[in-house]
Amino acid sequence: LEARLEQAAMLKRVVDAIKDLVQDCNFDCNDSGIALQAMDNSHVALVSMMLKSESFSPFRCDRNIALGINLTSLTKVLRAAQGDDILTLKAEDAPDVVNLTFESPESDRLSEYDIKLMDIDQEHLGIPDTEYAATITLPSSEFSRITRDLSALSESVAIECTKEGVKFTCTGDIGNGSVSLRQHTNVENDAKSVDISLTEPVALTFSLKYLVNFCKAAGLSDRVRLCLSNEVPLLVEYGLSNNSYLRFYLAPKIGD
C-alpha cells in the first residue's frame, strides 16, 4: 500500500471523530481505497468510513490488506502532523507495521513514524441498501447545536419527521425541550439550507450520548445527512471530497 494525502488534516479529523467510539480497528485497504467498519463496545453504534482511492494522489494497493490499528496509538502519531502536511501511508505485504510520513509543504522537514499493527478479529456486518423514509440534510453545526442543547436536559431525543418539517424533542428531570426545523433554502449560502425529503412520516428515539459523539465529525463537512426509517438504525453521514464519507449508524431505542 502507498497512499498519499494532500492534507493530513483529513485523516486527523476522521480519527479524532471516531476514536472515542471505537478503539481497535481494521483499516481494510484494496484498490478502491481504505475502508473501516467497527461497532462501539456496547454494539449500539456502527462507524463506517470510506476513503476512496480518488481522495489520495497517488494511491496504490497491489494486494488487499487489513491494517489492524489502535486508534489511540494512531492519534499519538497523527498529533505529530501539521494539518497541511502531506501524509503518506505505506505498508508492505503481510505487514507488522504501517509507516506514516509527514512532509511540510513549505520546508524540507520530513517526519516518519511506524505504528505496530494488531491482529484484530472483527465482525463485519452487511449494511443493506435502504430507501429511507426521511432524509434531512442540514448544516453540521446546526445538528451539533441541537444534540448539545438537548443532551443538557435528557439522555434521549425523539426525532419526528413529517411534511411540516423535523422536530427534535426531549424530556428530562428539569423539564423538556424541542427544536423544530422546516425545509428552508438559503439563497445566499446553500450550506445553511435545510433540505427534507420524505416518503412517509417517521418517529424514532435515540440516545443523545451517541449523537453528541457523532458530532465530533462536524469539522469534516459543512453538511450532515440524517436518514431515517421507522424501526431501523439512523444513518448520520458526513460527506468528504471525492465521494469519501464517514457514516455512523445508531440503533433506535425500543419500548414505549
Partner: peptide
C-alpha cells in the same frame, strides 16, 4: 443500556 436496541440485530453478520 435499558431500552436500547443493538445494531447487530439490524445488520447481518457477513
Amino acid at each position: 443500556i435499558e431500552g436500547q436496541g443493538s445494531i447487530a440485530t439490524f445488520f447481518e453478520k457477513k
